[in-house]
């Protein structure tokens, strides 16, 4: 069988069967074998790099997390079992981190999906200037979380009285005083919920783009048929269109979910070390590189990896299966 995959070849014959009569058999075989070896050689450096920098380093992180390297820059690999992980269970700061991650991730997912879907449906109404609106909702995607964080820290400034500024000032001037808020400085646990606002601002355009692509994939005939059957616009979306967008929602959950489980820069830029807004990614950074507690840092990193893997691995496996099924 040929190594060139024949996904796009309509004929039922494998390509090797068709190309066989064109060339003397022996020569082709030889050239072909060389090409096969070459194909592996070409991707080998990448495979090696990933084996070392991803899998090797993960293994090494696990080793560090099981060590007694809790102080200083000089490694101490004395084996100390699961001590670091057990410590994390009763670590107050890590408890705050886990709670913050749970609140942030669930709110972020729900709000981002709803806003993204809403924007996509609004843009799917054969508008003039659709491209213009689309670019506006998408542009925050091009920014770094640091830029977003710096800008939103001022927008969400909680000061009151004569120091009032940012969105609070805007609401005050527009007579929308009931919207004035302490934003991310709201007492725990809800301060972190306000950090969802800049995160949604940045990522909802992406969700919109995914849903829009999904909506464009639904045939007009189907919509027409539903309308002929007397469905109104709401029923059309509720019963015909939304059920067809499930796979888009799944992909969006994967991308948004893993982004938010490891959220780091946005928190750093907005919280500026406020422990009430802490998340595991920030704790890992601080405890490792400021506190020199390498084994605790490694343990946090591994816990984060496991959380993300629970979400990603099933998706990757099913993705691979469908890829194989296509061949």
């Amino acid at each position: 069988m040929s190594a060139i995959s024949d996904r796009n070849v309509p004929s039922g014959l494998p390509p090797s069967d068709r190309s066989r009569p064109h060339a003397p058999r022996q020569g082709r075989r030889l050239a072909f074998t060389i090409d096969r070896i070459l194909s592996v050689l070409i991707v080998l450096p990448s495979i090696l790099a990933i084996s070392i920098f991803v899998y090797g380093f993960i293994a090494w992180s696990v080793r560090v997390s099981l060590s007694a390297w809790t102080k200083g820059l000089i490694p101490n690999y004395t084996y100390s079992g699961l001590t670091r992980y057990i410590e994390l269970l009763s670590d107050r700061r890590f408890g705050i981190d886990m709670r913050n991650t749970a609140i942030f991730t669930s709110l972020f997912l729900v709000v981002c999906l709803i806003v993204g879907l809403l924007l996509a449906i609004l843009l799917d109404q054969r508008l003039k200037g659709e491209g213009f609106f689309r670019s506006i909702f998408l542009f925050p995607m091009a920014l770094s979380f640091i830029v977003t964080g710096v800008a939103w820290r001022w927008l969400m400034n909680p000061a009151t009285g004569t120091r009032i500024s940012g969105l609070n000032l805007l609401f005050d001037q527009l007579g929308l005083d009931f919207l004035i808020s302490r934003w991310h400085t709201t007492p725990p646990p809800w301060g972190i919920a306000f950090v969802v606002i800049p995160a949604v601002w940045q990522m909802s355009g992406f969700t919109m783009a995914m849903y829009l692509a999904g909506l464009r994939g639904i045939s007009d005939d189907l919509r027409e048929a539903a309308r002929v059957d007397g469905a109104n616009e709401f029923q059309l979306y509720r019963y015909i269109i939304l059920p067809q967008l499930q796979s888009v929602t799944l992909s969006a959950v994967i991308v948004l979910g893993h982004t938010s489980l490891k959220i780091f820069d946005l928190i750093v830029a907005i919280s500026q070390n406020d422990i009430k807004l802490d998340v595991p990614a920030v704790y890992m950074w601080r405890t490792t590189f400021d506190g020199s507690n390498y084994s605790r840092g490694a343990a946090i990193g591994i816990v984060m990896l496991i959380t993300v893997a629970v979400l990603i691995v099933p998706y990757l496996i099913s993705s691979m299966r469908s890829q194989e099924a296509k061949l």
Binding site: F57, W60, S61, M284, T288, I302, M304, V308, L316
Partner: peptide, 23 residues
């Protein structure tokens, strides 16, 4: 190849905190 490719893809989802110290 498909398995190896999937294993490579996993690398884009990992939280980099889990490889930071060895890196």
């Amino acid at each position: 190849a498909d398995l190896i490719f999937t294993l490579i893809l996993f690398g884009m989802f990992i939280p980099y905190q889990s490889i930071l110290i060895p890196l």
